[in-house]
């Protein structure tokens, strides 16, 4: 497995040089960042090149890095209003004209080569464009069709050249993109049956967000090196 991985890494740097930048990856994985202007060209080469041959797009998904590594918890604000990611009370209505931080939205492609048996994760940031937009890879891998519809539905990322970019998972007539980090977990609308009107009506959510989930912690004494490696009972 490791020889194949090294061969893939060598092939990638031989073909693309510094057009691919290393991205976060766990052990035994290869992940690269690619610039959006080069996405289609790189993907076509990845599929067709003899030493790469990624015949299958296993997965494609959007990621919203808005709150990445940001501590949203401050003790002074920790009142009954809650303090976790789940309990954001204020409804944030995104400004339709705002431009996004360039490192906010990314699309991640998981590629698999069946003939050479290796995997690659490709990540592509959308830049600060509003709405975020990337070229569609449906012409390269047919399986991207629904994955791109899903990413559009959940994150509002547009894919230029997609044949049929409709919402996929959310309700008919849904407003907003629910997997963005500024979309509340409880949503904005709820439905109920109205006996007077004799039909189901939509109304703003009436449930109060409460803190039922543990707060976000990043570090405490348990993880400091001197304590972590101490033998038990010492």
């Amino acid at each position: 497995m490791s020889e194949r991985r090294e061969a893939l890494a060598a092939n990638l740097s031989a073909r693309f040089g510094d057009r691919l930048q290393p991205a976060p990856a766990a052990a035994k994985e290869i992940a690269v960042d690619v610039h959006r202007d080069e996405l289609l060209e790189v993907c076509t080469t990845l599929r067709d090149d003899e030493g790469l041959r990624f015949e299958m797009l296993v997965d494609l998904c959007g990621v919203d890095y808005l709150g990445f590594g940001v501590a949203e918890w401050q003790t002074e604000d920790a009142t009954d209003q809650g303090f976790s990611r789940a309990a954001q009370r204020a409804t944030i209505i995104p400004d339709p004209d705002e431009s996004y931080p360039p490192q906010r939205f990314a699309v991640t492609y998981h590629l698999l080569s069946l003939s050479l048996n290796h995997r690659l994760r490709l990540r592509c940031f959308t830049g600060d464009a509003n709405p975020p937009m990337l070229p569609s890879v449906t012409t390269i891998w047919q399986s991207a069709d629904w994955y791109e519809r899903e990413a559009f539905d959940l994150f509002g990322i547009l894919f230029a050249g997609h044949p049929d970019l409709r919402r996929l998972l959310t309700d008919y007539g849904f407003i907003g993109h629910p997997f963005r980090k500024d979309f509340p977990v409880s949503g904005n609308l709820e439905v109920r049956y109205d006996p007077e009107q004799g039909r189901v009506v939509y109304q703003p959510v009436s449930i109060e967000p409460r803190t039922l989930v543990p707060r976000v912690i990043r570090d405490d004494n348990r993880y400091t090196a001197s304590l972590k490696d101490r033998p038990p009972g010492a």
Partner: peptide
């Protein structure tokens, strides 16, 4: 970031996990 896949009865079931160091 990590991606782990298993041979699920229906096919490849993968989980792509992004962690920012939190719990």
């Amino acid at each position: 970031e990590a991606y782990a896949a298993v041979e699920h009865p229906k096919g490849e079931f993968g989980v792509y996990l992004v962690s920012d160091g939190a719990n």
